[in-house]
Amino acid sequence: MANTPEPTPRDGHTVAFIGGGNMARSLIGGLVAGGVAAGSIRVADPGEATRAGLETDFGVSTFAEATAAVADADVWVMAVKPQVLRGVCEGLGDAARSRAPLVVSVAAGITTAQIERWLGGTAAVVRAMPNTPSLLGAGMTGLYANGRVDGAGRAQAETLLAATGRTEWIDDEALMDAVTAVSGSGPAYVFLFAEAMEAAAIAQGLPAASARLLVQQTLLGASRMLAESGEAPGELRRRVTSPNGTTQAALETFEAGDLRTLVADAVDAARRRGQELSAAND
């Protein structure tokens, strides 16, 4: 299933997403909600159901083949799994050399040098690590540009990703695996903590619906305080912790369980996995 309406690009740019999975869906949803014309977005995905869902939900054009999606696009967003990115890029090498697009990759662990080489050695590549809150316009994306990306390309990539939330440029690509470990994977850490809090609340006798609401609003409110107060997390924690009170009792339990080391180890494990993905797919 595919449709091919005439593109109506914003600022003259047509964007092709290669891959229509969860991250692409989050980014596309954020872009459309942020005012980017659906007609300027093209998506290639082999799954007919995936294509149909994207067309229905966002009104974008979809294609079974990547070469068809990129034909009229000057920005390519690589949103496939790291394990298949090499084959996808090599299949688009001729198109990349003839069109010279700006390539934005959201594949964890894959470097700009790898992507540039797989596309034929001349591509302007921005490595991006967004996260799933991009669907709500509340995403966080770390960005790194290779030497072929000029100022206009950087502005173009930032505009693309800023439609889905905040962005931060990273000067050293070696740190992009840390970005992946912190913000890229980070929402899952919060969801795991929410699961644990819900289960603990239910174990204390609260109804499941009440437990979920209490946890959701607590995390939402705490996140807003972090983002809007201008205070460091440690200071906010101290303000809510009365000496010998209930919060202190809970925090002492976390500290006794060495929560800080566990979090540090988890982030480091995610970072190392990013490096392994790069090495395994070179």
Rank of each mutant, 00 (worst) to 15 (best):
W76R: 01
S105Y: 03
G87W: 09
M129R: 01
V88E: 03
M197N: 04
F193L: 14
M176Q: 04
A209Y: 03
I170S: 03
D172C: 11
R166V: 14
L160C: 12
D177F: 00
S210N: 13
V182D: 06
P207A: 10
A181T: 09
A194V: 12
A145C: 11
G151T: 01
T141A: 02
G91A: 10
P133L: 07
V77N: 05
D74T: 14
A124D: 03
G120C: 12
D74G: 14
V103I: 12
T112W: 00
D172V: 13
E198Q: 13
W169Q: 04
K81Y: 10
L192E: 09
R127C: 04
W169P: 15
P101C: 09
P130S: 04
L175K: 07
G184F: 00
R99N: 15
W169M: 08
D171C: 07
P133I: 05
F193Q: 05
G151C: 06
A200S: 15
V88Q: 03
M197V: 15
V103W: 00
A68N: 12
S98T: 15
V182N: 02
G121S: 08
G139M: 07
C89M: 08
V106Y: 07
T112N: 04
V182M: 09
R97F: 10
T167S: 02
F191Q: 06
I115R: 00
V179P: 05
A71G: 10
A152N: 13
T67P: 08
A174E: 14
D171E: 14
A128L: 01
Q83H: 15
A201K: 04
A152E: 14
T180C: 08
I115L: 07
V125H: 00
V104F: 04
A163L: 08
A113E: 14
T141M: 02
T111V: 07
S105F: 05
G139I: 07
G137D: 08
A203L: 07
V77C: 12
G87P: 12
V106C: 12
W76P: 01
L119R: 00
A79D: 09
L192M: 14
L161Q: 01
L102C: 08
N146D: 11
V75W: 09
S183N: 11
G151P: 09
Q204F: 10
M78P: 11
A69H: 02
C89T: 07
A208Q: 13
D177T: 06
I115Y: 00
R117I: 11
D172I: 13
A200K: 08
V190H: 10
G142W: 03
G93H: 03
L161A: 05
V84E: 11
E195I: 11
E168F: 11
